[in-house]
């Protein structure tokens, strides 16, 4: 029996995937209709936007002392949180690796890492602000938790991908557990660990300028209050400071990455 070949559509999309697309479009249309996004509002907003841009410039650096002290606080939060988070991740990541640890250890540690990752830093910051009060300490704890969630997860995954031959070779010499980790596991994953750490330092720097919105120290608090007081020219100055900080951070992390390559 000769099968009919549809020459026009050699790779026909299946019926189920068509329905999936249809469902997706229906959902998008529904989502759009439920949200109160009128064209009028958009046009009205554009007018308002022009006025806002007008008030954003020129940036006002009159309160540069406040700006500088906040900037330094953001930097301090980012550095302390990154160092703490990365050092803790080193151990947590090792404990979460399923090829080195029994399930009794790795499963609870993995749940802990997942918990650290699930919440946005701002939500974690809210809890820590309640626990340790306003200020830099809450920021440090928040970003430490965020760092553990990211670095420990990726580090554990990197460890799970290592070649086990070296581990066996080192074990065969009669080395203990610590020696096996230090001489067989760490050398295989160290460069990737450095990579994750640099990335996290960069992202902590960005987030440290943000968590101040809920009172956890750094530039964010000043930014938020400047917005609420319609102090828009100061807002521009703060934003420029943040962007400068991020650019410097990016340049430094590129330098470190090149050194460790």
């Amino acid at each position: 029996m000769a099968t009919v070949v549809d020459r026009k559509h050699p790779f026909k999309t299946s019926l189920s995937s068509k329905f999936l697309w249809l469902g997706l479009f229906a959902y998008l249309a529904y989502a759009f209709s439920t949200l109160d996004i009128g064209w009028n509002r958009f046009v009205l907003g554009l007018d308002q936007g022009a006025r806002l841009v007008d008030r954003l410039f020129p940036p006002n650096f009159a309160r540069w002392e406040l700006l500088l002290s906040d900037l330094i606080e953001s930097l301090q939060i980012a550095i302390i949180a990154s160092v703490l988070g990365i050092v803790i991740s080193l151990f947590v990541g090792l404990m979460a690796a399923r090829n080195l640890m029994p399930n009794a250890i790795s499963i609870p540690v993995r749940v802990f890492i997942a918990l650290c990752r699930t919440f946005h830093p701002v939500i974690i910051a809210i809890l820590f602000v309640k626990a340790v009060g306003f200020g830099a300490m809450a920021g440090i704890l928040t970003l430490t938790v965020a760092s553990i969630g990211f670095v420990a997860k990726l580090f554990a995954e990197a460890i799970e991908e290592i070649s086990f031959k070296q581990v066996e070779a080192i074990r065969a010499t009669g080395a203990g557990f610590i020696s096996t980790i230090v001489f067989a596991v760490i050398p295989q994953v160290f460069s990737r660990f450095i990579g994750f750490s640099i990335y996290q330092l960069d992202s902590n720097l960005r987030n440290s300028t943000m968590i101040g919105i809920v009172g956890a120290g750094g530039l964010g608090g000043t930014l938020f209050s400047a917005f609420q007081r319609f102090d828009y020219d100061f807002v521009t100055a703060i934003l420029m400071a943040i962007i400068a900080l991020i650019l410097v951070g990016e340049a430094l992390s590129n330098l470190v990455r090149r050194i460790f390559q």
Binding site: L35, D36, I37, R41, F42, G45, L46, Q48, G49, L52, V122, R206, N207, T209, M210, I213, G220, L223, F224, F227, Y232, L239, I242, I243, I246, L247
Partner: peptide
């Protein structure tokens, strides 16, 4: 370079509080 919360602050200032600023 600009965090989504900062984008949100800017758009809340422009379009007023609400879903549009979030989107």
């Amino acid at each position: 370079s600009v965090n989504s919360l900062v984008w949100a602050l800017l758009f809340v200032a422009v379009f007023g509080p609400g879903v549009l600023a979030g989107v």
